[in-house]
Design a protein around this nucleic acid. Sequence first.
DNA 1: AAATATTCTGCAACCCTGTTGCAAGTTCAG
DNA 2: CTGAACTTGCAACAGGGTTGCAGAATATTT
Lengths: 136, 136
Amino acid sequence: MDQLRETLKVHHLRTTTCREDVLSTFINRKNALSHGDLEGALGENYDRVTIYRTLKTFLEKGIIHKVLDDEGLRYALCSHNCSEEKHQHDHIHFKCSECGETNCLENLHIPAVNLPEGYHPEHFNLLIQGVCPKCN
Amino acid sequence: MDQLRETLKVHHLRTTTCREDVLSTFINRKNALSHGDLEGALGENYDRVTIYRTLKTFLEKGIIHKVLDDEGLRYALCSHNCSEEKHQHDHIHFKCSECGETNCLENLHIPAVNLPEGYHPEHFNLLIQGVCPKCN
DNA sequence: AAATATTCTGCAACCCTGTTGCAAGTTCAG
DNA sequence: CTGAACTTGCAACAGGGTTGCAGAATATTT
Protein backbone atom coordinates (compact mmCIF):
# COMPACT_ATOMS: atom_id res chain seq x y z
CA MET A 1 0.00 0.00 0.00
CA ASP A 2 2.66 2.44 1.01
CA GLN A 3 4.71 1.24 -1.87
CA LEU A 4 2.04 2.48 -4.25
CA ARG A 5 2.09 5.93 -2.70
CA GLU A 6 5.84 5.89 -2.81
CA THR A 7 5.83 5.09 -6.53
CA LEU A 8 3.40 7.89 -7.23
CA LYS A 9 5.42 10.31 -5.15
CA VAL A 10 8.64 9.48 -6.96
CA HIS A 11 6.96 10.47 -10.21
CA HIS A 12 5.46 13.63 -8.73
CA LEU A 13 1.90 12.46 -8.94
CA ARG A 14 -0.78 13.11 -6.37
CA THR A 15 -2.08 10.16 -4.43
CA THR A 16 -5.59 9.32 -5.56
CA THR A 17 -7.52 6.13 -5.12
CA CYS A 18 -7.87 5.69 -8.86
CA ARG A 19 -4.13 5.82 -9.41
CA GLU A 20 -3.52 3.47 -6.51
CA ASP A 21 -6.07 1.01 -7.84
CA VAL A 22 -4.78 1.11 -11.40
CA LEU A 23 -1.24 0.66 -10.21
CA SER A 24 -2.08 -2.22 -7.93
CA THR A 25 -4.03 -3.90 -10.71
CA PHE A 26 -0.91 -3.81 -12.85
CA ILE A 27 1.12 -5.25 -9.98
CA ASN A 28 -1.34 -8.02 -9.13
CA ARG A 29 -2.08 -9.25 -12.62
CA LYS A 30 1.35 -9.52 -14.05
CA ASN A 31 0.52 -9.45 -17.72
CA ALA A 32 -0.07 -6.53 -20.05
CA LEU A 33 -3.49 -4.94 -19.68
CA SER A 34 -5.72 -3.15 -22.12
CA HIS A 35 -7.92 -0.26 -21.19
CA GLY A 36 -10.82 -2.68 -21.35
CA ASP A 37 -9.20 -4.98 -18.83
CA LEU A 38 -8.83 -2.12 -16.40
CA GLU A 39 -12.33 -0.91 -16.99
CA GLY A 40 -13.53 -4.43 -16.31
CA ALA A 41 -11.59 -4.54 -13.07
CA LEU A 42 -12.31 -1.02 -11.85
CA GLY A 43 -15.05 0.27 -14.08
CA GLU A 44 -17.68 0.46 -11.40
CA ASN A 45 -15.55 2.71 -9.29
CA TYR A 46 -14.17 5.10 -11.85
CA ASP A 47 -15.20 6.80 -15.03
CA ARG A 48 -13.74 5.52 -18.31
CA VAL A 49 -12.18 8.89 -18.95
CA THR A 50 -10.40 8.87 -15.63
CA ILE A 51 -8.87 5.50 -16.40
CA TYR A 52 -7.73 6.78 -19.80
CA ARG A 53 -6.17 9.83 -18.23
CA THR A 54 -4.51 7.72 -15.57
CA LEU A 55 -2.98 5.51 -18.25
CA LYS A 56 -1.82 8.54 -20.20
CA THR A 57 -0.25 10.07 -17.13
CA PHE A 58 1.48 6.82 -16.20
CA LEU A 59 2.81 6.55 -19.74
CA GLU A 60 4.21 10.06 -19.67
CA LYS A 61 5.79 9.57 -16.28
CA GLY A 62 7.44 6.32 -17.24
CA ILE A 63 5.46 4.07 -14.91
CA ILE A 64 4.01 1.95 -17.71
CA HIS A 65 4.84 1.41 -21.38
CA LYS A 66 2.83 0.57 -24.45
CA VAL A 67 2.73 -2.97 -25.72
CA LEU A 68 1.83 -3.37 -29.37
CA ASP A 69 -0.71 -6.01 -30.11
CA ASP A 70 -2.43 -7.10 -33.27
CA GLU A 71 -5.80 -6.37 -31.78
CA GLY A 72 -5.19 -3.16 -29.90
CA LEU A 73 -2.85 -1.44 -27.52
CA ARG A 74 -1.98 -2.80 -24.13
CA TYR A 75 0.06 -1.45 -21.28
CA ALA A 76 2.55 -3.01 -18.89
CA LEU A 77 4.60 -1.85 -15.95
CA CYS A 78 8.06 -0.55 -16.65
CA SER A 79 10.35 -2.79 -14.69
CA HIS A 80 13.50 -0.76 -14.51
CA ASN A 81 12.76 2.68 -13.42
CA CYS A 82 11.86 4.69 -16.45
CA SER A 83 11.33 8.39 -16.07
CA GLU A 84 9.61 11.20 -17.84
CA GLU A 85 12.81 11.93 -19.69
CA LYS A 86 13.77 8.46 -20.70
CA HIS A 87 12.00 5.24 -21.44
CA GLN A 88 14.18 2.22 -22.00
CA HIS A 89 12.51 -0.87 -23.39
CA ASP A 90 14.24 -3.35 -25.54
CA HIS A 91 12.67 -6.46 -24.10
CA ILE A 92 10.37 -8.82 -25.93
CA HIS A 93 6.61 -9.22 -25.61
CA PHE A 94 5.01 -12.60 -26.00
CA LYS A 95 1.35 -13.03 -26.76
CA CYS A 96 -0.23 -16.41 -26.27
CA SER A 97 -2.77 -17.36 -28.91
CA GLU A 98 -4.45 -19.77 -26.48
CA CYS A 99 -5.02 -17.78 -23.31
CA GLY A 100 -4.67 -14.39 -24.96
CA GLU A 101 -2.29 -13.09 -22.34
CA THR A 102 0.56 -10.82 -23.33
CA ASN A 103 3.63 -10.81 -21.14
CA CYS A 104 6.95 -9.04 -21.03
CA LEU A 105 9.96 -11.28 -21.29
CA GLU A 106 12.10 -8.94 -19.26
CA ASN A 107 15.23 -10.97 -19.45
CA LEU A 108 15.31 -11.33 -23.21
CA HIS A 109 16.64 -8.46 -25.21
CA ILE A 110 15.84 -7.73 -28.80
CA PRO A 111 18.80 -8.80 -30.91
CA ALA A 112 20.70 -6.13 -32.80
CA VAL A 113 19.61 -5.43 -36.36
CA ASN A 114 21.81 -4.05 -39.09
CA LEU A 115 19.71 -1.37 -40.65
CA PRO A 116 20.62 0.06 -44.07
CA GLU A 117 22.47 3.36 -44.33
CA GLY A 118 20.44 6.34 -43.24
CA TYR A 119 18.11 4.73 -40.74
CA HIS A 120 18.37 6.01 -37.17
CA PRO A 121 16.53 3.67 -34.85
CA GLU A 122 15.27 4.92 -31.52
CA HIS A 123 12.74 2.42 -30.18
CA PHE A 124 12.24 -1.26 -30.73
CA ASN A 125 9.09 -3.23 -30.28
CA LEU A 126 9.06 -6.96 -30.84
CA LEU A 127 5.89 -8.98 -30.41
CA ILE A 128 6.10 -12.73 -30.68
CA GLN A 129 2.86 -14.63 -30.97
CA GLY A 130 2.58 -18.30 -30.20
CA VAL A 131 1.80 -20.66 -27.34
CA CYS A 132 3.06 -19.92 -23.86
CA PRO A 133 4.33 -22.48 -21.33
CA LYS A 134 1.09 -22.42 -19.36
CA CYS A 135 -1.02 -23.40 -22.39
CA ASN A 136 1.42 -25.85 -23.80
CA MET B 1 -4.61 -2.46 -64.84
CA ASP B 2 -4.71 -6.02 -66.04
CA GLN B 3 -2.22 -6.89 -63.39
CA LEU B 4 -4.72 -5.86 -60.77
CA ARG B 5 -7.37 -8.12 -62.21
CA GLU B 6 -4.85 -10.87 -62.45
CA THR B 7 -3.96 -10.55 -58.78
CA LEU B 8 -7.60 -10.65 -57.78
CA LYS B 9 -8.23 -13.64 -59.99
CA VAL B 10 -5.34 -15.58 -58.51
CA HIS B 11 -6.91 -15.15 -55.09
CA HIS B 12 -10.39 -16.09 -56.33
CA LEU B 13 -11.88 -12.68 -55.86
CA ARG B 14 -14.34 -11.00 -58.13
CA THR B 15 -13.17 -7.96 -59.99
CA THR B 16 -14.76 -4.84 -58.57
CA THR B 17 -13.70 -1.23 -58.91
CA CYS B 18 -13.28 -0.87 -55.16
CA ARG B 19 -10.88 -3.78 -54.96
CA GLU B 20 -8.95 -2.51 -57.96
CA ASP B 21 -8.69 0.95 -56.47
CA VAL B 22 -7.62 -0.26 -53.04
CA LEU B 23 -5.06 -2.54 -54.57
CA SER B 24 -3.63 0.13 -56.82
CA THR B 25 -3.44 2.56 -53.91
CA PHE B 26 -1.29 0.06 -52.07
CA ILE B 27 0.89 -0.34 -55.14
CA ASN B 28 1.28 3.37 -55.82
CA ARG B 29 1.99 4.56 -52.33
CA LYS B 30 4.58 2.13 -51.21
CA ASN B 31 4.26 2.50 -47.47
CA ALA B 32 1.88 0.86 -45.04
CA LEU B 33 -1.60 2.37 -45.06
CA SER B 34 -4.21 2.70 -42.39
CA HIS B 35 -7.89 2.46 -43.05
CA GLY B 36 -7.99 6.21 -42.66
CA ASP B 37 -5.41 6.69 -45.39
CA LEU B 38 -7.48 4.64 -47.79
CA GLU B 39 -10.65 6.41 -46.81
CA GLY B 40 -8.88 9.68 -47.48
CA ALA B 41 -7.79 8.47 -50.89
CA LEU B 42 -10.98 6.72 -51.95
CA GLY B 43 -13.60 7.78 -49.45
CA GLU B 44 -15.67 9.76 -51.86
CA ASN B 45 -16.11 6.79 -54.12
CA TYR B 46 -16.77 4.05 -51.63
CA ASP B 47 -18.47 3.53 -48.35
CA ARG B 48 -16.27 3.12 -45.26
CA VAL B 49 -17.71 -0.30 -44.67
CA THR B 50 -16.78 -1.46 -48.13
CA ILE B 51 -13.20 -0.40 -47.59
CA TYR B 52 -13.14 -2.27 -44.27
CA ARG B 53 -14.51 -5.37 -45.91
CA THR B 54 -12.04 -5.08 -48.75
CA LEU B 55 -9.17 -4.89 -46.28
CA LYS B 56 -10.52 -7.86 -44.38
CA THR B 57 -10.86 -9.89 -47.54
CA PHE B 58 -7.36 -8.97 -48.71
CA LEU B 59 -6.00 -9.97 -45.30
CA GLU B 60 -7.70 -13.34 -45.42
CA LYS B 61 -6.57 -14.03 -48.96
CA GLY B 62 -2.97 -13.12 -48.23
CA ILE B 63 -2.78 -10.03 -50.40
CA ILE B 64 -1.93 -7.69 -47.54
CA HIS B 65 -0.68 -8.13 -43.99
CA LYS B 66 -1.16 -6.25 -40.76
CA VAL B 67 1.51 -3.88 -39.59
CA LEU B 68 1.49 -3.15 -35.87
CA ASP B 69 1.89 0.44 -34.96
CA ASP B 70 1.81 2.28 -31.67
CA GLU B 71 -1.07 4.40 -32.82
CA GLY B 72 -3.22 1.91 -34.66
CA LEU B 73 -3.17 -0.84 -37.22
CA ARG B 74 -1.85 -0.41 -40.72
CA TYR B 75 -1.73 -2.68 -43.71
CA ALA B 76 0.88 -3.38 -46.35
CA LEU B 77 1.17 -5.53 -49.44
CA CYS B 78 2.54 -8.99 -49.02
CA SER B 79 5.55 -9.13 -51.25
CA HIS B 80 6.13 -12.82 -51.60
CA ASN B 81 3.00 -14.50 -52.53
CA CYS B 82 1.13 -15.31 -49.40
CA SER B 83 -2.00 -17.35 -49.65
CA GLU B 84 -5.11 -18.02 -47.68
CA GLU B 85 -3.40 -20.98 -46.07
CA LYS B 86 -0.10 -19.43 -45.22
CA HIS B 87 1.20 -16.01 -44.42
CA GLN B 88 4.92 -15.66 -44.10
CA HIS B 89 6.24 -12.42 -42.67
CA ASP B 90 9.39 -12.16 -40.75
CA HIS B 91 10.57 -8.86 -42.13
CA ILE B 92 10.98 -5.66 -40.19
CA HIS B 93 8.76 -2.58 -40.16
CA PHE B 94 10.26 0.84 -39.73
CA LYS B 95 8.20 3.82 -38.64
CA CYS B 96 9.64 7.27 -39.08
CA SER B 97 8.89 9.65 -36.26
CA GLU B 98 9.37 12.64 -38.57
CA CYS B 99 7.23 11.88 -41.60
CA GLY B 100 5.08 9.28 -39.91
CA GLU B 101 5.46 6.76 -42.71
CA THR B 102 5.76 3.10 -41.93
CA ASN B 103 7.59 0.92 -44.39
CA CYS B 104 8.46 -2.73 -44.76
CA LEU B 105 12.14 -3.48 -44.84
CA GLU B 106 11.66 -6.54 -46.99
CA ASN B 107 15.26 -7.52 -47.12
CA LEU B 108 15.86 -7.52 -43.40
CA HIS B 109 14.79 -10.52 -41.44
CA ILE B 110 14.00 -10.56 -37.78
CA PRO B 111 16.94 -12.12 -35.99
CA ALA B 112 16.43 -15.39 -34.18
CA VAL B 113 15.54 -15.22 -30.50
CA ASN B 114 16.25 -17.87 -27.91
CA LEU B 115 13.01 -18.17 -26.02
CA PRO B 116 12.89 -19.91 -22.63
CA GLU B 117 11.68 -23.49 -22.35
CA GLY B 118 8.02 -23.96 -23.14
CA TYR B 119 7.44 -21.07 -25.51
CA HIS B 120 6.31 -21.99 -29.00
CA PRO B 121 6.60 -18.98 -31.28
CA GLU B 122 4.54 -18.76 -34.43
CA HIS B 123 4.56 -15.17 -35.65
CA PHE B 124 7.04 -12.36 -35.23
CA ASN B 125 6.37 -8.66 -35.50
CA LEU B 126 9.16 -6.17 -35.09
CA LEU B 127 8.53 -2.45 -35.30
CA ILE B 128 11.48 -0.12 -35.18
CA GLN B 129 10.79 3.56 -34.65
CA GLY B 130 13.25 6.26 -35.51
CA VAL B 131 14.23 8.54 -38.35
CA CYS B 132 14.22 7.29 -41.91
CA PRO B 133 16.75 8.18 -44.63
CA LYS B 134 14.39 10.68 -46.27
CA CYS B 135 14.00 12.71 -43.09
CA ASN B 136 17.53 12.41 -41.97
C1' DA C 1 -6.33 24.11 11.17
C1' DA C 2 -8.02 27.00 7.37
C1' DA C 3 -7.39 29.16 3.08
C1' DT C 4 -5.30 28.89 -1.27
C1' DA C 5 -3.50 27.25 -5.50
C1' DT C 6 -3.14 23.32 -8.05
C1' DT C 7 -4.40 19.15 -9.70
C1' DC C 8 -7.99 15.32 -10.52
C1' DT C 9 -12.41 13.54 -11.48
C1' DG C 10 -16.93 12.93 -13.64
C1' DC C 11 -20.01 14.19 -17.03
C1' DA C 12 -21.37 15.32 -21.61
C1' DA C 13 -20.10 15.38 -26.01
C1' DC C 14 -17.56 14.21 -29.85
C1' DC C 15 -14.73 11.67 -33.61
C1' DC C 16 -12.52 7.37 -35.25
C1' DT C 17 -12.26 2.31 -35.74
C1' DG C 18 -14.37 -1.80 -36.64
C1' DT C 19 -18.55 -4.89 -37.04
C1' DT C 20 -23.23 -6.83 -38.39
C1' DG C 21 -27.85 -7.36 -40.87
C1' DC C 22 -30.34 -6.55 -44.65
C1' DA C 23 -31.98 -5.05 -49.20
C1' DA C 24 -30.43 -3.74 -53.68
C1' DG C 25 -26.96 -4.06 -57.08
C1' DT C 26 -22.98 -6.66 -59.62
C1' DT C 27 -20.29 -10.34 -61.28
C1' DC C 28 -19.60 -14.59 -63.46
C1' DA C 29 -20.77 -19.17 -65.28
C1' DG C 30 -23.61 -21.91 -67.90
C1' DC D 1 -29.14 -13.72 -70.93
C1' DT D 2 -30.66 -15.76 -66.77
C1' DG D 3 -29.80 -17.32 -62.10
C1' DA D 4 -26.91 -18.23 -58.23
C1' DA D 5 -23.44 -16.29 -55.69
C1' DC D 6 -21.14 -12.56 -54.25
C1' DT D 7 -20.46 -7.47 -53.25
C1' DT D 8 -22.01 -2.97 -51.96
C1' DG D 9 -24.36 0.80 -49.40
C1' DC D 10 -27.03 2.11 -45.70
C1' DA D 11 -28.34 2.11 -40.99
C1' DA D 12 -27.13 0.98 -36.70
C1' DC D 13 -24.25 -0.38 -33.12
C1' DA D 14 -20.15 -1.18 -29.70
C1' DG D 15 -15.76 0.19 -28.32
C1' DG D 16 -11.52 3.11 -28.15
C1' DG D 17 -9.76 7.47 -27.37
C1' DT D 18 -10.03 12.71 -26.71
C1' DT D 19 -11.55 17.43 -25.09
C1' DG D 20 -13.86 21.20 -22.23
C1' DC D 21 -15.68 22.42 -18.25
C1' DA D 22 -17.50 22.62 -13.50
C1' DG D 23 -17.02 20.65 -9.16
C1' DA D 24 -14.22 17.83 -5.99
C1' DA D 25 -10.01 16.37 -3.89
C1' DT D 26 -5.14 17.08 -2.80
C1' DA D 27 -1.07 19.48 -1.40
C1' DT D 28 0.83 23.75 0.31
C1' DT D 29 1.19 27.80 2.79
C1' DT D 30 0.43 30.47 6.62
